[in-house]
């Protein structure tokens, strides 16, 4: 099996649904990072069969709010001195901008160039968002 060394300090984003690792990598703009990043795809997981993982070295202050929206099963561990210092509980972000698109074919977002898709959380339990422009529902999970 491919081995990736454990990190001394940084973030481990684990239990990502297979195939979603790249999406998160792109969302966090890790391709532009000036620190070491490992994207591991299709790793074997005791819990879920297969999973993706991202290890980020030396950085611990990334904005991870969106991860809870992408997949609430994702776990995030902050590593310092090679031990888990903090497990972050992911919650749904109150607002989402420029990540998901409104599915209402009559929405203004379907017509205007360069418009930023914006959503507001209206039901935390059910993970329901609405489009800020047309109020159309977006089911988060």
């Amino acid at each position: 099996m491919l081995r990736i060394n454990s990190i001394r300090k940084g973030i481990v984003i684990d239990h990502i649904k297979p195939g979603y690792g790249m999406k998160i990598y792109e969302y966090l703009k890790l391709q532009d990072a000036n620190f070491t990043v490992a994207l591991i795809m299709n790793a074997i997981s005791r819990k879920y069969g297969r999973k993706d993982m991202i290890k980020i070295e030396n950085v611990i202050d990334l904005d991870l709010a969106m991860l809870g929206f992408i997949d609430p099963k994702i776990t995030v561990n902050i590593i310092e001195d090679e031990v888990i210092k903090e497990k972050i509980n992911l919650s749904l972000p109150d607002r989402i901008e420029g990540v998901i698109e409104c599915k209402n074919p009559r929405c203004i977002t379907s017509e205007e160039r360069e418009i930023v898709h914006k959503f507001v959380l209206i039901d935390k339990e059910k993970a329901i968002y609405k489009c800020e422009y047309c109020d159309h529902i977006y089911q988060g999970r």
């Binding site: 209402n104 009559r106 929405c107 203004i108 977002t109 379907s110 017509e111 205007e112 418009i115 489009c131 800020e132 422009y133 047309c134 109020d135 159309h136």
Partner: peptide
């Protein structure tokens, strides 16, 4: 007045 929903908000 606009045929697209959310146009006035935008």
């Amino acid at each position: 007045r606009h045929p697209k929903e959310g146009a006035p908000r935008y």
